[in-house]
Amino acid sequence: MTSTPPPSLDVTGLAFAYPDGHQALFGVDLTVGRGERVALLGPNGAGKTTLVLHLNGILGGGVGTVRVAGLPVDKRNVAEIRRKVGIVFQDPDDQLFMPTVREDVAFGPAAAGLRGAELDERVRTALDRVGMAGFADRPPHHLSFGQRRRVAVATVLAMEPEILVLDEPSSNLDPASRRELADILRSLDVTVLMVTHDLPYALELCPRSVVLSEGVIAADGPTRDLLCDEELMRAHRLELPFGFDPRTVPAI
């Protein structure tokens, strides 16, 4: 076999306990191929956030390895890793900390050393991809929640990441913003790992899902199959919204 690109994300045997002794992860194995969109499902307290913070080296020091596009996550290449792994946090007010949208989107690439026309170009492209090019000079707190979430995605896209990690992307969005965000995510050609409780959203966007429960990957398969497995769903406190039947949803 000639050089196939390494998977975007490769987690093997990852275990982690917080300093207070609480063990959050008990040996997680997860591989996400380049260009895949994968949903990470799991009840509250399953260790989803802990796993996400391992992906860009904010947490570490436990057992196991994380590789991003073949590059191991460790102290030496943390800057490179943070450029490759774009995390979109749940509250856009935490993510957007600069006085204007343009400066916020520019923050990541500028921290990586980009300047001048190249930086402007990067910012414009990223805002274009989320349909927010007309809002560059607005302060983030004057945007609607849905717009802020889209800008938050742009701040990460501007870093041209290998993998986009979204923490609860659909939370607090009204149905229209939710659909707009889905359209945007579907149009991107990057690897996506989406952490969510929103099972219909996972079905809509991600062909594959993994269930993280009690610190281990409890299931991994096509999203529709997992959602149709009532026993599995019940065992991991995952519930479909009232009246939603994954069997009757047409494939996209």
């Binding site: 792994v85 946090f89 509250d91 900390f97 921290a111």
Partner: peptide
């Protein structure tokens, strides 16, 4: 949380010149 978001985008203690 903001600091976490900044660190995730490559903040190392100084603001980049934009």
């Amino acid at each position: 949380r903001v600091h976490l978001a900044m660190v995730s985008r490559g903040y190392t203690g100084t603001m980049p010149v934009i």
